[in-house]
Simulated scan of single mutants.
Amino acid sequence: MKKRVLLPVFAAFMIFAGANSHEAEAASVDQLTSSAYKYIGTPYIYGGTTTRGFDCSGFTRQVFSDLGISLPRTSGAQYGQGQAVAKSNLQAGDLLFFNTSGAGVSHVGIYIGDQKFIHSQTNQGVSVTSIHASYWASRYIGAKRVKSFSTAELAKAEVKNAQIDFSVYASRGEVAIQLAKALNLDTSDTSSPFADVKPSAKYAGAATALNKIGVFSGDEHGKFNPASPITRAQLAKILVVAFDLQQEGDAPHFKDVPASHWSSEYIATLASTGITVGKGDGTFAVNDYVTLTHLEAFINRAQQQ
Rank of each mutant, 00 (worst) to 15 (best):
F64V: 07
Q91I: 02
A77L: 12
T100L: 11
N89D: 15
S34Q: 13
Y37I: 00
N89T: 09
A92S: 14
G80D: 13
G18P: 08
Q83P: 00
L90P: 11
I110P: 00
S35D: 09
Q62T: 15
T60P: 01
Q83R: 14
G102V: 06
S35L: 02
G104C: 02
V63T: 09
C56I: 03
G104K: 04
T100M: 10
Q91S: 08
Q91P: 01
G76K: 10
L32Q: 06
L90N: 10
F97T: 13
S101K: 10
T60I: 08
V29T: 12
T50D: 14
N89S: 15
S88T: 08
F13E: 09
G113T: 07
G80H: 06
P43V: 04
K116F: 06
D55C: 07
Y46P: 08
A86Q: 05
A84L: 07
S70L: 12
A12H: 04
Q62F: 03
S75R: 01
D66V: 01
G113C: 01
S21T: 15
L67G: 11
K87Q: 15
E23I: 10
G41A: 13
V85Q: 10
T60E: 08
G93T: 13
I118D: 09
S21N: 11
G80I: 08
N99Y: 01
T100Y: 05
L95G: 05
S34H: 09
L96M: 11
I110Y: 01
I110C: 00
G47E: 07
I69T: 10
Y79T: 08
F59V: 07
G80F: 03
K87H: 12
I45L: 12
S75Y: 00
V105I: 15
Q91W: 00
S35E: 14
G53K: 00
S106T: 03
R61S: 13
A84N: 03
I112Q: 05
G47L: 10
A12L: 03
R73C: 08
E25K: 05
T42M: 06
D114Y: 10
S70W: 04
F13G: 04
F64G: 04
A27L: 12
M14E: 15
S28H: 02
A12K: 03
I112N: 04
P43T: 07
A77N: 11
I15T: 13
G41P: 06
I112P: 02
I69D: 07
I110T: 03
G68W: 08
G18S: 14
R73I: 09
Q115F: 06
F16L: 08
Q78I: 11
Y39T: 06
M14T: 09
V105K: 05
Y111N: 13
I45F: 01
D66G: 04
D55Q: 06
A26W: 07
S75W: 00
D66S: 08
N20Y: 02
R52K: 06
K116L: 13
G104M: 02
D94V: 12
A26N: 12
Q81T: 15
S34V: 00
Q78F: 08
T49E: 14
I45D: 09
A24Q: 13
F64W: 02
P43D: 06
G58D: 11
A36M: 01
F59R: 02
A77G: 03
L71W: 02
S65E: 14
I40R: 11
S28M: 05
I118Y: 03
L71C: 05
A103K: 14
G53P: 01
Q115K: 14
H107A: 06
Q83F: 00
F98V: 05
E25T: 05
R61L: 12
S21W: 02
V63R: 07
G18H: 06
N99T: 04
N89I: 05
